[in-house]
Design a protein around this nucleic acid. Sequence first.
DNA 1: CGATACATTGAACCGGCTCAACCTGCGTGG
DNA 2: CCACGCAGGTTGAGCCGGTTCAATGTATCG
Lengths: 259, 259
Amino acid sequence: MSPSRPPGPPARTVFPRTSPAVLADDGDALTFCTTCAFSQACLSEGMDKSALMDLHVLVEHVGPLHAGEHVFREGDPFTAIAAVRAGTVKTYQVDRNGHEQVLGFHLPGEVIGLNAIHGDRYPCNAIALDTVMLCRFSFPRIATLAQRLPNLQQHLFRLMSHDIGVASLFARDNSADERMAAFLIGLSRRLAARGFSPRRFQLTMSRTDIANYLRQAPETVSRVLRRFEQDGLLHIKQRDVEIVDLPRLEALALAVLRS
Amino acid sequence: MSPSRPPGPPARTVFPRTSPAVLADDGDALTFCTTCAFSQACLSEGMDKSALMDLHVLVEHVGPLHAGEHVFREGDPFTAIAAVRAGTVKTYQVDRNGHEQVLGFHLPGEVIGLNAIHGDRYPCNAIALDTVMLCRFSFPRIATLAQRLPNLQQHLFRLMSHDIGVASLFARDNSADERMAAFLIGLSRRLAARGFSPRRFQLTMSRTDIANYLRQAPETVSRVLRRFEQDGLLHIKQRDVEIVDLPRLEALALAVLRS
DNA sequence: CGATACATTGAACCGGCTCAACCTGCGTGG
DNA sequence: CCACGCAGGTTGAGCCGGTTCAATGTATCG
């Protein structure tokens, strides 16, 4: 049987094709891309101006994608990686029983698609949770460019190397509380790294998604968050979070994050 | 308090320094390395002879290491990756409570150290479970070489990309049976890929290590294995395994492995 | 305002962990 | 060569965290 899709607007994959609107805005491309995580990281790793120019010629700005639109789907031929420029992208797999498994949430500044390289096809789905802007990099072309630019190659190596460790974080047998704390602290730090407030932020994903990611029941997520609030660790209203007692939350998360 | 070490021969890290015996056998290096997974993979990806020569100049043969010797330790400066040529290497971390967390078991043909690139230090320990032979590749040098050899760069990308997905396999939401089945099927396939028997093999790791890796109690591992035997899935005596009903074991593992 | 999806809360259940005891194979030394 | 010691492995009993199931609450949107 073919995989059933959730009802709603027909979900298309927007990734493989290039948005025409995007290619038109080359006037803004450079200024835009200065805010693009990929370029920034490359810059900070000592890449020179002309190299950066090469990168900018390569990049395609994709978006905006709206909540529920797919960036790519499991099984799509792998053509490109992408840096999230705005919004949140969720990656997930669906097993043959139709059960979803959330692999990760990707915030501005983070790169998706790296786990597709070895199989030539995307091993997972990527879907926008809110309004998402992307920088798309053709992988063959960025790999070729990396031949000439040691810093770019190094940056790609580092990105992938980093992702190897991340996946195993929540697979550990830590308590529900610890994993939730680690999840929130992780979000907080990643947001802070991109200039957002580390204490107040929005959960762009549903409780169900969080539960799935942390491998818990949604009910557990609810209960843990409520207890956190009662214990004065945070305020949470709907999807708006304010971390009140950061040190104590970090202490809880320590068991998972090891840092 | 400093981390306590198991008693026995003083455990040294053998990785950072170069075994003198190794550098001497350059006569054998080429023939040796033909059996080295890394070279083979590169060959199969279309790398030409002269490129392979460059790789051979780069490689250092390390070993034999004996059970209990460390290849590298958490926190060691990252200098090199290594392909396992013979034996089994276990990677693990130790949290501040002294609890060990097994990250993986690495069989001949597999590469360790890739998760160290982004941090400049090894994020985990690597220890020989039996007699281990390694091919060591200085990372700066292999990265430089990858600038000239697109196939090598591509191979490195693929290796890392592959490792991104592996870690999240043994999550909590699969049953103990399924995880054990997946573990055994995984071993079987990886061994088969290197020419060993997929039906009969040795568990080079202790029950405790398996339990730790699968995030279960050692008692659970015992019970599951015994039940597998009673159900006619396999024979197991000590650490010798013979898979009897491969299809049924694979069916069990399917929930975890998705293939 | 009703419909719908998401979120919360309560009660019961269960898989796997903990704790404790026992067994087994193997190396060691008398 | 056997007795002993010990690490690793097995087995049993009880318990607990988190899931499951079911019901109720709440935001959002046509």
